[in-house]
C-alpha cells in the first residue's frame, strides 16, 4: 500500500485563553506508514499531547489537514469521529483510565459496547484480548486489585478490543517503574510485529529506544525525525531476569 496510515499537512492547534491565543501546535506535516513504531519526544509543553489528541480524533485541529487511512478526518462530525475512534484507534493513557469497580473483562469490553456487540461477543473478545496481554486469569479482577503494570496491560487489552489499526499511547510508561516499563514496551513491540501501527509519547530515551522512528517536537513543531534501530524489549527482559519470569 502506497498511502500512509497517517498523513498530516500543516496541522495546527491553538487554544484561546481569554483574548490571547496559545499556539500548541504550529503546523506539523508528517506521514506515518502502516506497521511503524514511532516514539514522539520533546520537552514539556512542546505539543506532543496536543498532536496525539488530534491523531486520536479526540480534538479538532484549528487548521491543517489530517488523513487517517485515506479518510479526511479533520472535518468529520462528532459522531463520525466517535465511529473512527471506535473502529480504527486504540488508546493507552498514562494513568490507565480504567473504569473503577469494574472487572478487567468489562473494562476491556467497553469499546465493543458502542458498536452493538452482543454480550457473548463482548465477553469472548475481551477474554481473548486479556489472554493476549497475559492476563487471562485476572479477568474478574477490578482495577484496585491489579498492579500498575497489570492495569496498563488491561488498558492495552482494551485498546486491542476494537481491532484498531493504530495504537496511540501518551506516556504509557509514565506511571510505571523501569522494569514494568520494559514489560509494557515488550507488549507494544509484539503487537507492532503483528502489524499494528504504534505511536507513543515518552520523555525517556530508554523507552524511545524500542521504537523504529523517533520524532522530536519543540514549540509545536517537528524539529527532528529520524529512523532508529530498535532495541528488543523481550530480549532486555530475559537479560534482566535470567530465570525468565512471565
Amino acid at each position: 500500500m502506497s498511502e500512509p496510515l497517517i498523513r498530516t499537512r500543516s496541522l495546527a492547534k491553538h487554544y484561546s485563553m481569554g483574548d490571547t491565543e496559545v499556539p500548541a501546535l504550529r503546523g506539523v506535516s508528517l506521514d506515518i506508514d502502516r506497521g511503524e513504531f514511532v516514539a514522539v519526544m520533546g520537552p514539556s509543553g512542546s505539543g506532543k499531547s496536543t498532536f496525539m489528541n488530534l491523531l486520536g480524533c479526540l480534538d479538532h485541529p484549528s487548521s491543517g489537514e489530517y488523513w487517517l487511512s485515506g479518510q479526511e478526518v479533520s472535518r468529520l462530525s462528532g459522531d463520525e469521529l466517535a465511529a473512527v475512534r471506535n473502529r480504527k484507534i486504540g488508546f493507552v493513557f498514562q494513568h490507565f483510565n480504567l473504569l473503577p469497580r469494574t472487572t478487567a473483562r468489562d473494562n476491556v469490553a467497553l469499546p465493543l459496547l458502542y458498536r452493538g456487540a452482543t454480550a457473548a461477543e463482548r465477553h469472548d473478545k475481551a477474554m481473548r484480548c486479556l489472554e493476549q496481554v497475559g492476563l487471562g486469569d485476572r479477568h474478574h479482577h477490578q482495577p484496585t486489585q491489579l498492579s500498575g503494570g497489570q492495569q496498563q496491560r488491561v488498558a492495552i487489552a482494551r485498546a486491542l478490543a476494537s481491532d484498531p489499526m493504530l495504537i496511540l499511547a501518551d506516556e504509557p510508561t509514565g506511571a510505571l517503574d523501569s522494569r514494568t516499563s520494559v514489560e509494557i514496551m515488550a507488549l507494544l513491540q509484539a503487537l507492532n510485529r503483528q502489524g499494528l501501527t504504534v505511536v507513543l509519547v515518552t520523555h525517556e530515551q530508554d523507552v524511545a529506544a524500542y521504537a523504529g522512528r523517533i520524532i522530536h517536537f519543540r514549540d509545536g513543531r517537528v524539529v527532528e525525525d529520524r529512523a532508529n534501530a530498535p532495541r528488543n524489549a523481550a530480549g532486555d527482559l530475559t537479560a534482566a531476569s535470567p530465570a525468565g519470569a512471565s
Partner: peptide
C-alpha cells in the same frame, strides 16, 4: 467526567 471522556474516547457517541 473522566469516565464520560473515556467512554467517548473508545467510541461512545453523544447520544450514547
Amino acid at each position: 467526567t473522566r469516565e464520560i471522556g473515556l467512554r467517548m474516547a473508545v467510541g461512545a457517541r453523544s447520544r450514547d
